[in-house]
Design a protein around this nucleic acid. Structure first.
Length: 297
DNA sequence: AATGGTCAAGTCAGC
DNA sequence: GCTGACTTGACCATT
């Protein structure tokens, strides 16, 4: 069990997701942003390794606008050396990596233009991981998408689009249960049809479920992972006290996390903490997990 | 230097 | 049919 956090580290001074407004786009600006982002990524990875955090989500903004038609042909191959070097570091310290494209990446959209954009976006994410020389345990996790007033047809469109993806993309994908449209049971059904592993989001599951007990849900999700996919990934967070539906907590509640570790014992997985204060919570989680025989840091 | 409006993209609820 | 929430960090124009 490795513990990780997504994309950003506020303890270190660097900004790892520098971007720019598209109207201000230039090759110089792109270079400046990407070189800065890669340097910061390396700094964050070093910090993580020093602190027992061996799981990390790389931001989708690593190369801003990477799947934009004007930008895409320029960036591929442009940063290959840097990506290879960072990849070597990741492999040397056996760091688990994932990426998580945003809400606009919809494989099951009805409009072909949207699906095409989604595929280009997935190509970008996979290119980054490929150029780092990472195997398929480095996952790109996405949500199933919209319901479009017909759940089963929309799940069918996802499975169909998935089947048509190029192999280098298909092998990296994982689907995650969400909190408003597709609960775990739907993801498992899609997984059955596609072979795509399921990232189990504990918090989403608490908001949208079919009353499965935690350990049952955990086992079912874990069974969708082949050995070559790596340890199952689990997204952990809790609700913001007093916050609106679905809001993530500002910081880790160590007692809640300790209870979570107890309740999931002895099942093994890598834990991504989706919590606002990022590395602060990750370090606290690492401290809590020190006594757990599953923990690797 | 600080502030607040705005930013590629889509869906869905609410009017 | 249209508008705004969703969620959220960073950019950038304005002061």
């Amino acid at each position: 069990m490795k513990i990780g956090y997504p994309c950003i580290n506020r303890t270190l001074g660097c900004v790892g997701a520098r971007t720019f407004r598209l109207r201000n786009y230039s090759l110089d600006r792109l270079d400046e942003a990407v070189r800065n982002n890669l340097e910061c990524l390396e700094t964050m990875l070093r910090f993580n390794v020093e602190h027992g955090v061996l799981f990390f989500r790389i931001t989708s903004d690593l190369v801003p606008f990477a799947s934009h038609p004007d930008v895409e042909p320029l960036w591929v191959n442009r940063y290959a050396d840097e990506l290879r070097r960072i990849g070597s570091f990741i492999r040397a310290y056996d760091v688990r990596i994932d990426m998580h494209p945003g809400q606009y990446t919809l494989l099951n959209a009805k409009e072909t233009r949207i699906v095409e954009n989604a595929i280009r976006d997935l190509e970008y994410h996979c290119q980054i991981l490929d150029q780092m020389g990472l195997d398929k345990t480095a996952k790109v996790q996405i949500h199933v998408g919209g319901v479009y007033e017909d759940r089963s047809a929309s799940m069918g469109r996802f499975a169909e689009a998935f089947g048509e993806l190029a192999a280098p993309i298909r092998r990296r994908l994982a689907i995650e249960n969400d909190e408003r449209s597709y609960p775990l049971a739907d993801c498992l059904e899609i997984s059955e049809a596609t072979g795509c592993p399921v990232v189990f989001d504990v918090y989403h599951h608490s908001l949208l479920n079919q009353d499965e007990p935690l350990h049952e849900a955990l086992i079912a999700a874990a069974e969708t992972w082949e050995v070559t996919d790596g340890l199952p990934i689990l997204d952990y967070s809790s609700s913001l006290p007093g916050g609106r539906f679905g809001r993530h907590a500002d910081t880790l509640d160590p007692e809640d996390f300790e209870q979570f570790l107890r309740r999931t014992y002895p099942y093994d997985f890598d834990v991504m903490l989706e919590i606002k204060d990022k590395e602060i919570s990750a370090l606290r989680a690492v401290a809590v997990a020190q006594n757990d025989p599953r923990f690797v840091g």
